[in-house]
Design a protein around this nucleic acid. Structure first.
Length: 446
RNA sequence: CGGGGCGUAGCGCAGUCUGGUAGCGCGACGGUUUUGGGUACCGUAGGUCGCGAGUUCGAAUCCCGCCGCCCCGACCA
């Protein structure tokens, strides 16, 4: 993409309403525009990151054997009367009446609807296990939306639902989600710690929240800091191997890590003092096992091998997709702007032409542009007629992890400069070598 | 929902107390200049002062009502 033809409305000054760094940078980098309290338009740059995050979520869900579908944002109230949640959910649920006076709601979650789909089409244990998920907009009418996309009223969420014949199978689904989530967050450059959480209105005994440590997090967290060193890495976990999956979960949940809701002072104090940490975290996901809560109330049963009809065992699992933009920025920025991890960056690399209009510089930039594009690494080429300082400032603000700087001085020596946004370190090399290096950097992220 | 604050040009703000035809910086646009980290200068455009109803010769400013947004708290898969 050539910046002169793109739509990137960056702001030089901080918008007054944005208090935390991720919100400020998303507004300044032209990623979002607020339309109402807690409701945002996604401008082109923001949409690119949102799409990258969705790509990773989709890939990891499919890798774990989960099946995508898409349910609507609007739901009929009757479905929620069956589970009893129409009355329980409270003012947070946006209720709508259509022209025929039918009661509807903008879905805050989809347990009822997925259960309805399941009961209409699945009748036998032979169809299990089954895990369906979607990525869809949700609406929760928060009393006080804040922090930009971190706590919006409208937000994009991946929610998945597992259906299993018995509790053991359902707990395997729970574990499978935990591992797939760990992999998902790591690909986004995040350290998200699974913490035992309270179940809330969804119910269920087994639930973990995934927390990204950040000063601006809304949850107080208590943990043994050795959990932050745990990495799933490149290991290839067989998602059908119950023991192997459970082993990974054990590895990540044995050390103490809890939110204030489930905090146990005595257990916390047993941690060696050097590792005992209190901090704050951003919740970026949660997994639940809740058994037959919905299947019983809504009649979702299957015929078991012995011929009896049993309510299906379920769980639900969510990732806050739009919130992740904020969480990633909170975890990865400096005083100049965002620093995107390679996995989610809107463009893999930026090209800065230091002297627009100089025939050698223009030609070298277009050469790089074509070579990178051909290699599947779409660059953002700053071809505006701006001074070098303005171009650098824009690149730093929008946070592309790699930048190739092209100017007449370097070209006289046959080199361009490849710079890491994270470290600020630059290296001179030929344009061909720069393309090869960028390709190599991204080889592990695609 | 309790408490606090704010709505004036695209963005950041002054002007409101003490009523008299609306200003600054940044940005945009045009020009000159400059050119390896947000150049300097000159010029131009851009505003129903959140909305409505009052008081007044006259309202951004005073009064009343409403709307929107932000912050703290409570709430919150």
């Amino acid at each position: 993409m050539r910046l002169s033809r793109y739509f990137l409305p960056v702001l030089k000054e901080n918008p007054a309403e944005a208090q935390i760094v991720s919100h400020r940078y998303m507004l300044r980098a032209g990623m979002i525009k607020q339309q109402a309290a807690g409701i945002y338009s996604w401008l082109p740059l923001g949409l690119r990151v949102l799409n990258r995050i969705q790509d990773i979520v989709n890939q990891e869900q499919i890798r774990a054997g989960h099946i995508p579908l898409l349910m609507p944002t609007l739901q009929p109230a009757d479905l929620w009367r069956e589970s009893g949640r129409y009355d329980d959910y409270g003012q947070e649920m946006l209720r709508i009446t259509d022209r025929q006076k039918r009661e509807m709601l903008y879905g805050p979650t989809n347990e009822e609807m997925i259960t309805d789909i399941f009961r209409a089409h699945v009748t036998s244990y032979k169809d299990l296990p089954l895990t369906l998920y979607h990525i869809q907009w949700k609406f929760r009418d928060e009393m006080r939306p804040r922090f930009g996309v971190m706590r919006g009223r409208e937000f994009l969420m991946k929610d998945g639902y597992n259906f299993d014949i018995d509790k053991d199978a359902a707990l395997h689904a729970y574990n499978r989600h935990m591992v797939s989530y760990l992999r998902t967050y790591e690909r986004m450059g995040l350290t998200a710690i699974p913490m035992r959480a309270a179940s809330g209105p969804i119910g269920g005994d087994n639930t973990h929240e995934f927390l990204v440590l950040a000063q601006t997090g809304e949850s107080e967290v208590f943990y043994d800091d050795r959990v932050t060193a745990l990495k799933l890495g490149a290991r290839d976990v067989d998602y059908d191997d119950r023991a192997a999956v459970a082993k990974v979960c054990e590895e990540f949940t044995t050390l103490y890590a809890r939110t204030d809701e489930t905090h146990d002072e005595a257990a916390f104090n047993a941690i060696p003092e050097a590792h005992r940490k209190v901090g704050r975290g951003i919740e970026v996901g949660q997994i639940f096992y809740f058994g037959t809560k919905y299947s019983e109330s809504m009649g979702a049963t299957v015929v078991a091998p012995d011929g009896s009809k049993v309510p299906v065992e379920m769980g639900s699992h969510g990732i806050g997709v739009s919130r992740l933009l904020g969480a990633i920025i909170e975890a990865s920025h400096d005083d100049k702007g965002i620093i995107w991890p390679e996995g989610v960056t809107p463009f893999p690399v930026g090209i800065v032409n230091l002297k627009q209009g100089d025939s050698a510089a223009d030609a070298a930039c277009m050469g790089l542009y074509k070579a990178l594009t051909a290699a599947g690494l779409e660059p953002l080429y700053d071809d505006r007629d701006e001074r070098a300082g303005a171009k650098f400032a824009t690149m730093d603000l929008i946070g592309l992890p790699w930048r190739i700087t092209v100017g007449p001085r370097g070209l006289e020596k046959g080199v361009v400069e490849l710079t890491s946004r994270r470290t600020g370190e630059s290296e001179e090399m030929s344009p061909e070598a720069a393309v090869a290096r960028v390709a190599q950097i991204y080889a592990g992220h695609r």
